[in-house]
């Protein structure tokens, strides 16, 4: 057994190294968000909350934030609802080409976001649409749909089929059984999917970058301040966004486990 424990020790060290590499940048960002120095270099000066105050009073950040909220809430609402019906028909019916349709719904997963953004821009501007937040919402819906469908059909396939069949034989319509049996049993999954798609849409940058011109979302604002000279307020906004999405992500995971 001696040899194996050597292997195990190695694995423990590897795990610790990777985890610290993943969390190190986040930690540094949080620490620097309280640093009073204007430059992003060591050493650490004094403790300050100036950057947080800046973010909360800067109209551009506020505008980006509200735009992002509007877009991602509509994206996640739309995608969750649509995914519910897609998943329902995928799980509960058998028709020719079902497995093909199944694959088709998942294809956006294997397409880089930059391609979704770029081709939508080409296509929609050639059809006379101007880049706007509405187009961003369309693009992001396409990107989060597969995730929503996967999550929901996962849950739906666990619902015993005979529950619904019982309802039908007692004279319930298909629609009614869907609303009274499937919907309640997917309650937690629906909320979890909503939160998950929300966080993904909220953080998404490249699709939004291609599909809007003047009304920017928060990730675009962050990106432009990153590339055009550094602004320490980014650490503050990054910390806020990180903690919010981490909390939301954990909540959605817990809801998934709860079912």
């Amino acid at each position: 057994m001696k040899k194996f424990s050597l292997l195990n020790n190695f694995l423990y060290i590897l795990f610790a190294t990777i985890v610290s590499l993943i969390y190190l940048p986040i930690l540094v960002m949080i620490v620097f968000s309280f640093n009073s120095s204007k430059y992003q270099i060591m050493p650490f000066r004094n403790f300050t909350t100036t950057w947080y105050q800046r973010v909360l009073t800067d109209s551009q950040y506020i505008e980006g934030l509200s735009n992002s909220l509007i877009v991602s809430i509509s994206v996640s609402l739309f995608a969750t609802l649509l995914a519910f019906f897609c998943a329902y028909s995928l799980v509960n019916s058998n028709f020719k080409g079902k497995s093909f349709l199944n694959l088709f719904f998942l294809t956006p997963l294997v397409v880089p976001l930059i391609l979704i953004g770029i081709s939508l821009r080409f296509f929609l501007t050639s059809k006379g649409y101007e880049p706007s937040l509405f187009l961003v919402a369309i693009g992001q819906s396409i990107f989060v749909m597969p995730l929503a469908i996967l999550n929901l059909s996962n849950r739906m396939s666990q619902i015993p089929k005979n529950l619904e069949e019982a309802a039908w034989s007692l004279g319930s319509s298909r629609l009614r059984s869907m609303f009274e049996i499937v919907l309640p049993s997917c309650k937690f999954s629906l909320i979890a999917t909503f939160i998950l798609t929300f966080t993904f849409a909220f953080d998404e940058f490249i699709i939004a970058y291609f599909l809007t011109n003047f009304s920017i979302t928060l990730p675009i604002k962050i990106w432009t301040s990153l590339v055009t000279g550094f602004d320490p307020a980014i650490n503050a906004i990054g910390t806020i966004v990180f903690l919010t999405s981490l909390t939301l992500g954990l909540i959605s995971q817990i809801l998934f486990l709860k079912k």
């Binding site: 940048p25 960002m29 992003q40 050493p43 966004v241 992500g249």
Partner: peptide
Amino acid sequence: LILVAPFWTSFTIRAFSWQLILSDKGLVTW
């Protein structure tokens, strides 16, 4: 969960934090 939790956080911001650490005046050289 520890390993994959940062999935939900902005990829861009994480990439940028590495700048702070790895740049020539960053954490590592300091």
